[in-house]
């Protein structure tokens, strides 16, 4: 990794939100206004903290400098930031999933990949030329921690197997053949 401070990196922020309408939006606003690029949001469904808050995990991209600004802004807005940037996702991984993606609940597939691999989905493109009932394809870019690509691939294969989906894997870790 270079020392440059204007290099965009991926970060994960864990927040605890009060279960009220508009809370999530309020939490996301400081990210955008401070130059962060929102990648994904995961509610840990059904999970409530002992204080009755809802844990939310947000993946975003920003330069290290802006990231610090984002965390400050979140705290200033009274949002409970549990953990910020402890994991740095440093390896990118692109796969293509094909099969009955929509019928097998694509969003469930993605959350399972996320939960079981510690990898975060940073980009998703879906192509369903035959409509949602037909076989379709999705290109998914994931970010994982350094050295965790093989483990992530194993988990993805397991999830895909269970759902009868087909994975086209990248040739080399990071996809740079």
């Amino acid at each position: 990794m270079s020392d440059s401070t204007d290099e965009v990196r991926s970060y994960t922020v864990r927040l605890e939100l009060v279960d009220e309408p508009g809370e999530l939006l309020r939490a996301l606003e400081p990210i955008a206004t401070n130059g962060g690029n929102l990648l994904s949001i995961f509610h840990e469904r059904g999970n409530v903290t002992p204080r009755g808050h809802i844990p939310v995990e947000v993946d975003l991209e920003a330069t290290p400098e802006r990231f610090d600004g984002i965390v400050d802004a979140l705290r200033d807005a009274g949002i409970n930031v549990i953990q910020a940037g402890a994991e740095q996702y440093s390896e990118a991984l692109t796969i293509i999933l094909t099969g009955h993606l929509v019928n097998t609940d694509l969003s469930d597939t993605l959350s399972r990949i996320h939960e079981s691999t510690d990898a975060t989905v940073t980009d998703l493109s879906l192509s369903a030329p035959g409509g949602t009932d037909d076989a379709s394809s999705a290109r998914i870019r994931l970010a994982t921690e350094e050295g965790a690509v093989d483990e992530a691939m194993r988990s993805i294969r397991t999830v895909a197997d269970e759902k009868g989906l087909h994975v086209i894997e990248p040739l080399a870790a990071g996809g740079d053949a």
């Binding site: 692109t94 293509i96 094909t98 493109s125 192509s127 369903a128 030329p129 076989a135 379709s136 394809s137 999705a138 290109r139 087909h166 086209i168 996809g175």
Partner: peptide, 17 residues
Amino acid sequence: EISGSALELARADGRTV
């Protein structure tokens, strides 16, 4: 099992199969 749509998605991302 490789579909045209999978190749299309790969291509849009500068990749192929």
